[in-house]
Design a protein around this nucleic acid. Structure first.
Lengths: 221, 221
DNA sequence: AGACAAGAATGCGTGTTCTGATCGTCGAGG
DNA sequence: CCTCGACGATCAGAACACGCATTCTTGTCT
């Protein structure tokens, strides 16, 4: 699970980062609205934690822009305790949840977990590309109707590629999403699993884009 | 089945908790609206019992917020006997059923059971998979017509799997629904009970999906 | 006191994941 | 068009984690 934190106050930002990393999330930290907006628009996160009081661009504006761009990533907003108007405006602008400062980090983690669960819950349980079919509910994978048995890691990898089909996914991105905590970057496990998936599902399923990463093309698209 | 009770009056709250625990539910008890709302938003319950007369935040407000957050957990509302307006408002705000105070605990249990059944889309009180049959009303389990004696925890575990048959259920999910909030997460009890159920009902009933969880396949489907 | 259930601890076998080495291939530059 | 270098693919064995069985402790109910 990859989470973006947009928080200008350095101490709080760093603290949040380490806490959430400890909870098993991969964290990117943006220290102002500009950077936050950019990262949120270009990278793909499972959730975003957004402080409303930011320099340069206001948090609400950032949120608003994302929504206008069609981003549906769940956003958890941090507000000052008593600014009700912030809350209301935040919810209007498309925030999915809010936490008032100061807060217990446990509360933040709990809400983040709930948010991600909720968001992934209303996703359809079937992912497909060509004749490859993956049902997230039952954890079953088939190719041309034939059931294929995948191990846990193979499954996670394929599932991530399906979630981002058509897009080039870098090895780093895969590592960040499949493993929690930071993981030895120079290791070829991803390659190993790609090989294994290809063996089970066929060579043509995953395309290698040299120097960039992997991509899963959908012939239907 | 895990249920949240939001009830400010300590005696009644405790009494409800023990009664429902006796009926085989895992119970979390919140004593005010704030806490209730938080737990309801962040944890996952199969149903919620909500008293409308609460300090701090009113019960109706809590309910309303949950619904606005997109929570679909069935909620059973407790109202004073004659406050019709409460009932109406409650149903408007998204309550699924109400019980007037004072009430017979049997009635509450019955309605709760009905509520959970309704929510999970089962018209009857019978859950089946292959030749395994579980009757939620009488709490009896049979395999190929032969009655099988299960202990309370074994029953809960099996019942949860039957409610979600065909789906992969992670150990965490099982723990969250079978036990209440504070429970040692790293313990192997789930495995132990799976083993015990398999011993009583046969090896083939529960399938292990390594690294992901357990699943109960329905051969009829 | 005895029986039973729940949960904790332990050891073990097996399948999975990782590592490191080697082989293959693509593409840029001569 | 060929060569070389870099990057990716593949393989095999080692290390590891997972899930299972079994035993033991504790607590509860009769």
């Amino acid at each position: 699970m990859r989470v973006l934190i947009v928080e200008d106050e350095p101490n709080l930002g760093q603290q949040l980062k380490s806490t959430l990393e400890g909870a098993g999330y991969a964290i990117d930290l943006a220290t102002d609205g500009e950077e936050g907006h950019f990262l949120g628009s270009t990278e793909s996160y499972d959730a975003i934690v957004l402080d409303l009081g930011l320099p340069e661009i206001d948090g609400l504006t950032v949120l608003d822009r994302w929504r206008k761009e069609g981003k549906v990533t769940p956003v958890l907003v941090l507000t000052a305790r008593d600014s009700w108007s912030d809350k209301v405006a935040g919810l209007d602008a498309g925030a999915d949840d809010y936490v008032a400062k100061p807060f217990q980090t446990e509360e933040l983690i709990a809400r983040l977990r709930a948010l991600i669960r909720r968001a992934s819950g209303n996703a359809s349980s079937e992912l497909t590309a060509g004749d490859v079919r993956l049902d997230t509910r039952s954890g079953k994978v088939t190719r041309a109707g034939e059931p294929v048995k995948l191990t846990a890691q193979e499954y996670k990898l394929l599932s991530y590629l399906l979630h981002h089909k058509g897009k080039v996914v870098s090895r780093t991105e895969l590592i960040e999403h499949i493993y929690d905590q930071d993981f030895d970057r120079d290791s070829n496990t991803i390659e190993v699993f790609v090989t294994r998936i290809r063996k089970k599902l066929g060579q043509d399923v995953i395309t290698t884009i040299r120097g960039l990463g992997y991509s899963l093309e959908d012939p239907d698209a």
